[in-house]
């Protein structure tokens, strides 16, 4: 986003969360016997973001890009070395304890709730968000009903499947209304029914109360469908921030060609050998990012003649957010995890 747009937003008062120059460095660890040392790591590097009221804002990046570190600083769980975080007018760096009264956080871990029943986990979380017993029970019943968790209410969370457990923790995060939801990979391991329950619960809150959502994900498909805007993180830096379609326009001139060979690439065919240094290879699969006319030529080559005999399958696709990430110079050559 341009600086001018950020300024305009700040004046409009519609920014829920403003992050400026956020930097956190993990110190170097000296190696000990048997364990090699690790160098100093910039987990977040001069991050600047504006999250607007009522939007689903995504943080996308590969493992180790600094998504979780960034979220921990926004939720008051970690102090940054430098920079500011302002949520709904409150300075979270100076008053980290206020974050708990503004936002609900769904972390990746559920150990605090594991041994409770679904119903007690939701009720206790509501009570710890300052609700009285009656309110907490009413909200618990409403949320469990909304997410279809009623039949599981009496089961300990530990005994549920991964996706159900995640849904139960999501339910706990919703009890005790908050204007900002921070969700760290909420739909991991969920089946499509549970995913739909999560997104319709989020949509209802956005429509009724203009709830804002900050979503951490490395699921590219989900990112493309649910996010209003997305910040792409790479090695602690925001390398791009726009709507998913805006980001994809940046690589609109490219097409992704995937070739799956039967057992190995036919390098004896000169046209195939010529592609070898432009390809991202993983086992029998070759991935190429090409201009449309080049792509046509490649497809014509491999679907005819000697190369075709060695070909198992091929696909031609318009770019995804993953291609955007790689085109922007993302460090991880394997790209994002595509679930």
């Amino acid at each position: 986003m341009s600086t001018r747009a950020a300024q305009a937003l700040r004046h409009s008062g519609d920014v829920v969360c403003a992050v400026r120059g956020l930097t956190k460095t993990y110190p170097a660890v000296r190696g000990r016997r048997g364990t090699p040392g690790t160098p100093e790591v910039r987990a977040t590097d001069d991050v600047r973001l504006d999250i607007r009221r009522g939007e689903i804002f995504g943080l996308l990046g590969p493992n180790g890009a600094g998504k979780t570190t960034l979220v921990r600083q926004l939720t008051g769980l970690m102090r940054p070395d430098r920079g500011s975080v302002e949520i709904l007018g409150h300075d979270i760096v100076r008053h980290p304890e206020r974050a708990a009264r503004i936002l609900a956080y769904l972390g990746q871990e559920s150990t605090a709730l594991d041994e409770l029943t679904v119903s007690l986990a939701a009720e206790t979380t509501g009570r710890l968000r300052g609700l009285d017993v009656r309110q907490a029970r009413a909200e618990r019943d409403a949320v469990l009903d909304e997410l279809g968790l009623g039949p599981l209410a009496g089961r300990p969370i530990k005994k549920l499947s991964g996706g159900q457990r995640r849904l139960a923790c999501f339910a706990a995060a919703l009890v005790g209304e908050r204007p900002l939801l921070v969700l760290d990979e909420p739909t991991t391991a969920m089946d499509p029914v549970a995913r739909r329950a999560v997104w319709s619960a989020v949509d209802r809150r956005r429509a009724e109360r203009a709830t804002t959502v900050l979503l951490v994900t490395h699921n590219v498909i989900e990112a493309e469908t649910v996010l209003d805007r997305v910040a792409v993180l790479d090695r602690g830096r925001v390398i791009a921030c726009d709507t998913p379609s805006g980001l994809k326009e940046r690589v609109a001139g490219e097409v992704r060609v995937e070739l799956l060979w039967r057992d190995r690439a036919p390098l004896e065919v000169p046209e195939v050998a010529a592609l070898q240094d432009r390809v991202v290879e993983s086992g029998r699969r070759w991935t190429l990012r090409l201009a449309p006319e080049e792509a046509r030529a490649v497809v014509a080559t491999v679907t005819g003649g000697a190369a075709f005999a060695a070909l198992d399958d091929f696909t031609l696709a318009t770019p995804s957010l993953e291609d955007v990430y790689l085109a922007l110079g993302g460090a991880a050559q394997q790209g994002l995890v595509k679930a």
Binding site: G13, E86, G89, R98, R101, I102, E123, G130
Partner: peptide, 29 residues
């Protein structure tokens, strides 16, 4: 950089009710 007034914070959980809630949850474990 005049900013809009800070939003109202959610309620703080008071000591006794939250202590009882944690106690009850732990006992159920």
């Amino acid at each position: 950089t005049a900013r809009p007034a800070a939003a109202e914070l959610g309620p703080r959980a008071r000591l006794w009710p939250s202590l009882c809630a944690v106690y009850r949850a732990q006992l159920s474990r």
